[in-house]
Amino acid sequence: MKYQGVEIEDTFAEAFEMWGSRLIITAATPGWAETAARVATGLATSIIGCGCEAGVNRPLPPERTPDGRPGVPALFFTTSKEAMEAQLLTRVGQGVMTSPTSACFNGLNVRERVKVGSRLRYFGDGFQVSKYVEGRRLWRIPVMDGEFVVEEGMGVRPAVGGGNFFIMAETQEAGLAAAEAAVAAMVEVPDAIMPFPGGIVRSGSKISSKYKGQHVSSNTPYCPTLRGQTEVELPEGAEAVFEIVVDGLDEGAVRKALQAGIPAACGDGVLRISAGNYGGKLGKYQYHLHKLVRG
């Protein structure tokens, strides 16, 4: 099918079960809340090399945060609850607690929790203070600018990772502009993140390699410069491909993000929209592009 003159391939994006968590990171100013959240979610592009995938949602006004200060929701995705606990402990401990005026709260209303504040509290060296309000326990940890307040447990829930689509364009410039437009539309969807730099990935991978011990390698069928050397799956005239990967706290969040992103990507110079899958053998979730575009 065609959408705004762009070919939408009859294929689907294959996505996987993950574990998701949502933290609300607050600070005295919107800028410092953003800084703390960006640092905590930094270097979390791919589960393969980073241990988790993470990103931020739109900032929250003070009246919508647990402590009435400016806040930013930060979303994290891992392959297990154990991995989530380890990642959050490191990222909150090193990225949020160190950031001036910050505080960190659970942002998911679910029963299942991983321990974060209850482990970080030992940093207080015996001077940490617990506060318990309506089923939520906070830890007040003394730090050099006052106190770092962190919630004891952070909610985790089954989530969806790896929703994706490819933008195949005539030029790198056109492809990047389309990808940026797609991301701009997708960031408005709550509970979904695009974990790669600026929401866009250029080094898509396949899960095989000619080298022993190398589990993933360049996604050669989508590398335009390999035309003539190996088999490529690109339309005639496509000289650049950008991929957008989406993780969401539920299936619907990923779907909504894809539905927002794909039409927005169908701009000048874009030849085809495609998606990555493993024939439906590995992932629980399938997002068919035609259905997404039809709405």
């Binding site: 607050t26 003070p62 945060t65 647990p66 402590d67 009435g68 200060r69 505080a103 709260f105 506060k131 309000v133 309506e134 906070l138 007040r140 006052g146 106190e147 307040v149």
Partner: peptide
């Protein structure tokens, strides 16, 4: 002398409970 952040959490909680307080 300090700005207790935990107190803000309490106030938000009390506002949600309907008490006419403000940060």
């Amino acid at each position: 002398t300090f700005e207790p952040v935990f107190l803000r959490f309490y106030i938000q909680h009390l506002i949600k409970e309907g008490l006419m307080l403000s940060q």
